[in-house]
Simulated scan of single mutants.
Amino acid sequence: MTRPPTAAQRRVIDAADPVTGRLRGTEAQLAALVKRGLAFRHPRPPHDHFLTPAGHRTRESPEPPAAAEPEPAPAHGFAARVGGEERADDGPARAREVHSAWQGLLELRRMTNPDGATDRPCGWERTHLVRAAALALEAAGHPPEGPQGPGYRVRATVQPEAVAVYAPDGEGLRACAGTLEGAGWQTGEYTEPRTRRRYLLASPRRV
């Protein structure tokens, strides 16, 4: 069984950028994470280090209790709105956060897609489907469902690599479809048999 990361390594992993997985730490810490397969060093300057898919899974898994050392404070990172949040802070600060997160995701696509393409989703998005689709929608200016009123809602499905996207009406659904397709997703419109509500089934495009 692979040994879990040390407390110091875990703090580096927890502090990684929530979207790009960019790491900050000492050379020794970063080298140790690379050796464990939890991080990789980007081949192009400035040769930053990023979490691998295994590193992302480690960050999202519960941290085992440590008897000899107090638990580090949880990392508070950016979270795209999936719709249905009870509270939502709007304003210039949120707009800047969303813009920065989207630009970071495009950079992650450039760095991790084999051909450097930014017009289709990368591996991180395929393992964070709901968050990735919600970020694409929020970054394009679609309002999420919440205290301010109706809007989009993104939810997981039983289908592999697919999320369900709901909107208040057909026009909103078509607008969401256009945004997701422009962001490298493929969409199809369906009807729920029981409620007759229309929704999008969206999945990341591979080519």
Score class of each variant (00 low, 15 high):
V82T: 11
G146Y: 13
P144K: 08
T179R: 10
R198L: 02
D169P: 05
L33M: 02
G25S: 07
L23M: 03
P46N: 13
A93L: 13
G104R: 08
G104E: 04
G172I: 06
Q103V: 12
A101C: 05
A79D: 02
A101V: 09
W185I: 00
V154G: 00
A93Q: 14
A177M: 13
R110C: 05
P193H: 01
A7P: 15
H99E: 15
M1Q: 12
L105M: 13
L30Q: 04
T179E: 01
E138I: 15
A67R: 12
T6F: 00
Y199K: 08
G116S: 10
G184L: 01
P92A: 09
R126L: 05
E71R: 12
G21F: 05
G104I: 11
R57E: 05
P45C: 07
P18S: 04
A164V: 01
T20L: 01
G37I: 07
R24Q: 12
G149E: 13
H76C: 09
V165C: 09
K35H: 07
R3A: 15
R131Y: 10
R153H: 06
V158T: 14
S100Y: 10
D48Q: 15
T20S: 15
R196E: 02
G170L: 04
D115G: 14
T58F: 00
D119P: 14
P53S: 00
V34L: 04
S203V: 06
D48C: 10
P114C: 12
E71Y: 08
A132I: 08
E181D: 13
R197I: 07
R174N: 15
P18H: 01
P144Q: 14
V165N: 14
T26G: 14
A139Y: 05
A136V: 01
D90M: 11
R197A: 09
E86L: 14
R110E: 14
R110T: 13
P43C: 06
A175Y: 04
R3H: 12
E69F: 09
C122T: 12
A39S: 00
E27I: 05
L173G: 02
V82Y: 10
P168N: 01
P72R: 00
T58L: 02
P45E: 11
L33F: 11
G146F: 11
E138W: 11
V98R: 05
F50I: 07
F50C: 05
L105S: 08
R59I: 00
F78L: 02
G188N: 05
G55M: 03
A54I: 05
E71K: 08
E85H: 12
A202W: 01
P147L: 07
A134P: 11
T2F: 08
R81T: 06
V12C: 06
A162C: 11
Q148I: 09
V158W: 01
P204A: 05
D17K: 01
R59Q: 04
F78T: 02
P4Q: 10
L200C: 03
H56M: 09
L173E: 00
L108C: 15
Y166K: 03
D90C: 08
L33R: 05
R155H: 12
P143C: 04
V82H: 15
V154T: 10
A167L: 10
P64F: 03
E97S: 10
Q9K: 06
A54V: 09
P4M: 00
C122Y: 14
P72C: 00
L201W: 07
E161K: 10
L38H: 07
S61D: 13
M1V: 14
H56P: 03
A68G: 15
L33E: 01
L51T: 07
G182A: 02
W102N: 12
R59L: 02
L105R: 11
